[in-house]
Amino acid sequence: MNTRIPARSEIKAGPMLNAYPDSIGGTLGDIIKFLQKPELENVFQSFYILPSLFNTDLDRGFSVIDYDLNELYASQADLEELNKLGIDLKFDFVLNHSSVLSPQFQDILKNGENSKFKDFFIDWNKFWNGYGQMTDEGYIQPDPEYIRDMFFRKPGLPILYVRMPDGKEVPYWNTFYQKVKYPNIDAQDLIRAMDIQYALADKLAETVNKAVSEGEKPSAIDFGKFNRYKENVIDMLESRRKYLGQMDLNIKSPLVWEYYEDTLKKLAGYGAKIIRLDAFAYAAKEPGAKNF
């Protein structure tokens, strides 16, 4: 639990230092030593610390797992030192999305429909139900009149398929980065999962790992003489699927607003005087309306 830093009443006008916590020397502590130099006294009135200050995984900090301090770069003591220097702090709060490694999304991966966070992110098919047609691939293609004014950052629809504990594939809204990874398998994995001899399992694992490393999706792998094992191997690979990415939050969920409130309180506790709302324009979504 962090100690709340006393807030000062006014935001001072003057130059603002913008930096990632590892921009000078490698840690926030190194930046503080820089700011403590006599020749820099009263030079900067505020400090915009970019979001790798927090527990993040991608996009130079803009894919937030949670807003705990990143122990590699910063500590509560560092923030207290900045407060002693009289420097106002500015932080980012990412409104539109959270990392797939966030506790909320990980709870969905673990508990599926039984997760308390099942509506925390945007289930693509629930969002578009009644506004399009279901495709053979399992997602709803919105009718043109409902999607023509929407802005998408990347080609195609912003969907990431997520496998639930029961094996069901659910498309989630994913505006920004996404990546699906399949861990390597070995002969022992295959032997535990199916009736197969070791030598065959060893060769099959080699074939599968090579295909996956070259970017093949499990369903597209040419199993050749191992075709009788195809269904079991695909199921194994998909059940072990790992994700990287930033999942869009469902701002119609009360839990999201609780998350917003809790996060703002945490940032205030760090001594924030200014909060930059990142990606907020993407957060509001309605069929047929502009989303940016």
Rank of each mutant, 00 (worst) to 15 (best):
L69D: 01
S253E: 06
K179R: 14
P183Q: 10
Y67L: 01
Y172M: 11
S219N: 13
K84C: 05
K273S: 13
G112H: 11
S213T: 10
P158E: 03
F93S: 04
E41H: 07
V94Y: 07
S213G: 09
D166E: 06
I191W: 02
K168R: 14
I49S: 07
L255C: 01
T27P: 01
P144W: 11
S115D: 02
I140V: 05
K118S: 09
K217D: 12
A283E: 12
V208A: 05
E137M: 04
S52P: 00
K265L: 00
D202V: 03
I122E: 09
K37T: 13
A77N: 06
L82G: 02
S102L: 03
A279M: 13
K33L: 13
Q106I: 06
P103A: 14
N2H: 10
E214Q: 14
Y73P: 00
Y270K: 02
L264P: 04
L249P: 00
Y198I: 11
E71S: 13
L190I: 06
L72P: 00
D262Q: 12
P103M: 12
K84Q: 09
D189T: 05
D88R: 09
L244A: 10
R163W: 04
G245P: 05
D195M: 10
F47M: 07
F93E: 02
G130M: 05
M164Q: 11
I275D: 08
G130A: 11
I185K: 10
F176D: 05
E39M: 01
Y182F: 12
D202N: 15
H97Q: 11
G25L: 13
Q188T: 10
M134F: 05
N227A: 13
I274K: 06
L58T: 03
L28G: 01
F280Q: 03
L237F: 06
N18Q: 08
P142E: 04
L200Y: 07
E137N: 09
L40G: 00
M236N: 08
P144D: 08
E71Q: 15
L244F: 10
N42T: 02
F151Y: 08
I159E: 06
F47I: 02
P6D: 02
D143L: 14
N125S: 12
P171E: 07
L249R: 00
L249E: 01
M236G: 04
F226T: 05
V256D: 09
V256F: 12
D143N: 14
Y131S: 01
P21H: 08
F152I: 08
A211S: 12
